[in-house]
Design a protein around this nucleic acid. Structure first.
Lengths: 352, 352
DNA sequence: GTGAAAGCGCTAACAA
DNA sequence: TTGTTAGCGCTTTCAC
């Protein structure tokens, strides 16, 4: 025993006991002081803080979480961290979380079910108190694990029949309708849509909303002008090229996300088509970059801040409200059209 | 794997004891089985795995870390997660870490010392086993805390006199020299440099390397053509405008990073200057986007994969090698020129 | 108000 | 090979 004590003074990083000894109080008092329990007398509390500072003591979060059963970690799983939409989203989410005393654990699934599975496993093992699944609808099977472990979750674009699951609905329809009407007002009648992968739920939603918007505007739906891409620039290039191979060309292209639109801009440029004189292009997301494309991209804004806030709020309610209390289970994030330089009147004679 | 055991609502989440009971072994045997200790007999090991599956048991990482003293978490602090360079870097780092059984804790300092301080505090509290500080040289004071807590670290572009600190040197000189010579070979004699904030160490290095490269190429250094920007597109726009206000114009602009170059491309476009006919532009980083700017950006590649690998390797050595053993303390990551479409011969008569 | 003591779920030393 | 047991550093009753 004596040996232990000596070694402790000599080399261990300070723990709550060291603080207690130095402050001449019990470890319980140290704990209460740190956690702001209202019972500690000012006299002792002062001694404790002094000792903490003197030893440069940091509480061990691991131990704290273990005993309290609260990790204060929130997980966030995104589709693809390489798409600028997601870092921006993560940043907002982290800010809110940290401001509320949570840590975040980030994972990128890269649309790969195997990776998703290990992400989920790691989240469970780390005892996260909730996870925001922002992969936009390709997740169902894995989520059972989360549900099984009673972990609150919030899903974008996806309903799960679980008492701990909330969902954030994205109102794409409003933004997409505005985009189509903007194009129609400019005089476009031939509008193509470069969709996202159909394996992603929200990509399908966006496409359907486009179809609806077209009809509302009294425009015909041309099957050939609706092409499935992959939400990446390269996909936009490919989609554009497939459009080019067609006998009849659209005068405007609405893209399922900004990355696709960036690819289209690039492909059009190489092809010698001027945007917006020869071709109008609209994106969706409004990533920070959208302002810096050439020309600046007209796009449908999906607010990352709003989305992050909704996700956090949903998780917080599930995690902190006494179970059984009425929590909000449905959130809605809206979209809106941001007009910049990539849209204009169609050419007087059909493009190409 | 389907949910085999339907857990009764009141039952608590299974722990190692539950598994032991069900498998009719001791908890030590369960622990050994999970951790792959080579001593467990196949007979028991089978029973244990069966019990684990039946209960859908996940080990509690918190408890594991607490007792083993190893959190298996690596921290990574980046300058600004909103700059695409960093998500790409994080992704590589995470892949390597996860493949080696580590989790990562990501923080973005946003070049704000206050945020950096809380990042570091959180890392210490979470008992990370090492942290990669990729803020490129604005960090010194805060790092003392890490050193004090004996946490291994690896710093980009920064030497710290601490036994647990390694550093990754970035060989910008090679890439920058190649860029300047590429420009010189094209016929440019008037080359500007849009630097990063001088508060960032690596920005200063890049600028100095540019000066050196200019001299090597026998070109004069024009003070007015070296402008401090902020490594963001908007900074590039501002830098370009300051250049435009000058009496004498450069025919090429080398930028301290790709984000700046993107701003320049945008500003030049608005000004009616054609790239590369009227003006050549070179970036640095080679973010994924660089390929999709208009025109595609000639840039100096700094490999994220290499950087991530070096960072992980440095941390692993410090964390896993027996203390006292010889570890590599210096790493070098190289750069190289990628020629795309934003560079060409200078206009025959001075630009503008 | 304050302290003593009982664990949180797990690993590892030591026994058997 | 397997089991028993002592903690890891902390929070939280429960006494005083």
């Amino acid at each position: 025993m004596a040996r232990r004590a000596i070694r402790k003074t000599l080399e261990k990083t300070p723990d709550i006991r060291a603080v207690a000894t130095l402050a001449r109080v019990s470890i319980a008092t140290v704990s209460r002081t740190i956690n702001g329990a209202p019972v500690v007398s000012e006299r002792l509390s002062k001694r404790v803080w002094a000792a903490i500072e003197q030893l440069n003591y940091f509480p061990n979060t691991l131990a704290r979480s273990l005993v309290s059963g609260r990790s204060r970690i929130l997980g966030i799983i995104v589709e693809n961290i390489t798409n600028p939409f997601f870092p921006e989203l993560i940043q907002s989410f982290e800010e809110i979380a940290v401001a509320n005393g949570y840590e975040i654990l980030v994972s990128s699934s890269n649309s790969d079910p195997a990776i998703l599975t290990t992400c989920v496993r790691r989240m469970i093992e780390r005892k996260v108190e909730g996870v925001a699944v922002l992969t936009f609808g390709e997740e169902e099977p894995v989520l059972e694990q989360l549900a099984y472990h009673d972990i609150p979750m919030v899903l974008a674009e996806f309903h799960l029949d679980d008492p701990k699951a909330s969902t954030i609905a994205l109102d794409y329809a409003t933004g997409i309708r505005a985009a189509v009407q903007h194009l129609a007002a400019l005089g476009h009648r031939k509008i193509a849509f470069l969709a996202g992968p159909h394996s992603i739920h929200s990509a399908v939603t966006r496409e359907n909303d486009f179809r609806t918007a077209l009809q509302e505007a009294g425009l015909a739906i041309q099957k050939k002008w609706i092409i499935e891409c992959n939400h990446k620039p390269r996909g936009g290039v490919a989609g554009f090229e497939r459009l080019q191979a067609l006998a009849s060309q659209p005068t405007a292209i609405l893209c399922s996300n900004d990355m696709t639109a960036i690819g289209v801009l690039r492909a059009a440029y190489l092809k010698g088509l001027k945007v917006p004189q020869d071709l109008s292009v609209i994106g969706l997301d409004d990533i920070d970059f959208a302002e810096f494309t050439l020309p600046p991209l007209t796009t449908i804004r999906l607010s990352r801040v709003e989305l992050a806030r909704a996700a956090f709020e949903a998780l917080r309610q599930q995690a902190e409200l006494p179970s059984g209390s009425k929590v909000q289970r449905e959130f809605l994030v809206s979209t809106s059209l941001v007009i910049r330089g990539s849209t204009g009147a169609p050419p007087t004679q059909p493009a190409e």
